[in-house]
Design a protein around this nucleic acid. Structure first.
Lengths: 194, 194, 194, 194
DNA sequence: CATGAATGAGGGTTCATTCAT
DNA sequence: GATGAATGAACCCTCATTCAT
């Protein structure tokens, strides 16, 4: 076996390699040949595990959704105060953006390459964002149930505002390759919930 | 000449066609062959006007920047009240998203396909967003100079918040193929500047 | 076990499936993967029963020869008059062409895909046709021994004429997807043996 | 330029090579890689001239139809007596079978590989055979208008019989790699028209 | 005896670019 | 200045076969 490649199972190696390449280079810029070369797998082996490149992409997004969310939850749940929990959303992506060299959101990037609205890939992306939006809404609910502060806006409206700030912060951090958009969004949220 | 093709100059036809295809399909998904076929131009003619596909992309972004901004300014300047001007940012993209079938921001979409930070393409994108960010900052300054309201946050902080809401609203409207993210952002801004 | 798959023995299932697919699609157009999938057999199991695709093809032709001939004999032997027996050759293929949606002769079709003259596959085909030719010759002999009619041509010459008409009728029925070539050949034979 | 290849135009070289390979090996057995290698043409050049392998096949059949027919006509028209003209049909294929090493009819062979009845390829094949059938019918008409012999069967019936004998002779000559089927068919026709 | 994973070679097709005219 | 033919590299995918279990 090629000693330069991981000794994990082929299917796992393919998914790991795809996760890296799709994220770093994009979907279309990543060819099957590069993918199998870096995964150390024969071409037909790849297609035994994934019927098509698109199927691999769906698996990648599905996998990434769980990875990313478990990381996010871990970060959020390391805090106990509702306000801190909300703010940790931004601390989390601040850290992620640095680690990923400001590549941004894997899901939004993928959506840019898939204009057709009804593809399975777009569905995975919407599903991911829907879960995130709901997660933020629940953090707001917890905050409001614990913190005694007059509500100027409805919970769901506040949640969507924070969700949109969160998303905007990611794409602008990616664009400028800088952390100020995330920090600005966090400060705005801090004022909203203090 | 193909009668289905515009009679404008070849270079202009190429740029018009590229604008449509790059935006609707993405950069990588648009091949040179499709481009010259739909532009009604010979292949060598194309390469005489644009040394490479990447050069065409730069020209496309440059061109689009001016188009988009002139449209935005026209919309904003159709209002006189500072608050209305600010809110018209969101009215504008609400309209644009519907017209473009929720394809989102041409610049952010392109950035997703170009991870390399130092490319001319990324530079065009950053330039565009920098101008937009500054434009919003100036709208805030006008608002604050005309409206007598105690400032809770600095002008530049408010400007960045609105800028990030603006960007987040676009990407989420694109993602969900819905207008609620734009409307939610606008309502948030409305509360901030009342 | 896949309930859609027959419960016969694996080897028999493979042969049944191959008979259908090779005949309907052709040899080259039928992949091993499709074959084992539709037969409900594992890939390695397939290669245990048939060392290669070509071996399977030989078995298919061998098998088909016996099937086809037993059907033909049954049809022919349902008649007692020598003339009727001869004409039933054409009635038989008229019926077969309709049942098989005008796919034609399995052996001639296979020969088209195997130009190399010395292959085992070509040998199977020649063997089949040789038996058929001999069968027709014997039908002629029976006819001549029973029917008292002056012979204008030698028995073997008449037999070959009918054999060639038979073969020509099949390929042209296949070509035009029509029965008239078979009917025309039968009428010609009828005149020859009246 | 590769000195081993003809100096004719690329498109012509492709068609010549395809004519040889499709006929000798079959359609499916001939890969694009082999084709372009033997034609001495780059892959993309091939696709500039022929949008697909199927298109090349259609062009091949069309081309072959004209070649084959002009050869046949030349042979037939070298005779003046109607009977000789008819019999020269068989002399012609007797010669052709030897030249082509008993590869048989390019059109019938191709039909074996294309079961789908509505393909353009099948249409080319049917068109070819329809022209041939009509040609034979006209030869019969000429014969009957010139030769004073009581007609036992209708002209069209006789024409179809000879057509079917012609076709049967080709496929059986191909099968046995022998000339006797053609000679047998010719003798039969000779008796019918003497 | 049966299996599913793995393979190298090749399938047909398209890519962005260059060249001779 | 404009053209269409030609190119090598790469595209995604499937082939018949083998091997370890």
């Amino acid at each position: 076996m090629n000693e330069l490649v991981s000794h994990s199972e082929p299917k796992a190696r393919i998914l790991e390699t795809a996760s890296r390449l799709f994220y770093e280079q994009g979907y279309q810029a990543t060819g099957i040949n590069q993918l199998i070369a870096e995964a150390g797998v024969a071409k037909a082996s790849f297609y035994q595990h994934f019927p098509s490149k698109e199927d691999l992409c769906v698996a990648y997004l599905h996998n990434r959704h769980h990875d990313w969310f478990s990381r996010l939850r871990k970060e959020v749940e390391s805090h106990t105060q509702p306000q801190q929990r909300l703010l940790s959303l931004f601390t989390f992506i601040e850290s992620r953006m640095q680690i990923t060299n400001f590549r941004g959101c894997a899901f939004l990037n993928m959506a840019s390459e898939f204009p057709a609205p009804d593809s399975r890939i777009r569905q995975e992306i919407v599903d991911h964002k829907t879960v995130l939006r709901e997660y933020i809404r629940k953090l707001i609910e917890s905050y409001r149930s614990e913190v005694d502060k007059p509500a100027l806006v409805e919970t769901s409206a506040l949640a969507d505002t924070i969700y949109i700030l969160f998303e905007g912060a990611i794409v602008e951090s990616q664009n400028y390759r800088a952390l100020w958009p995330i920090q600005a969004a966090r400060e705005t949220v801090k004022r909203m919930i203090q």
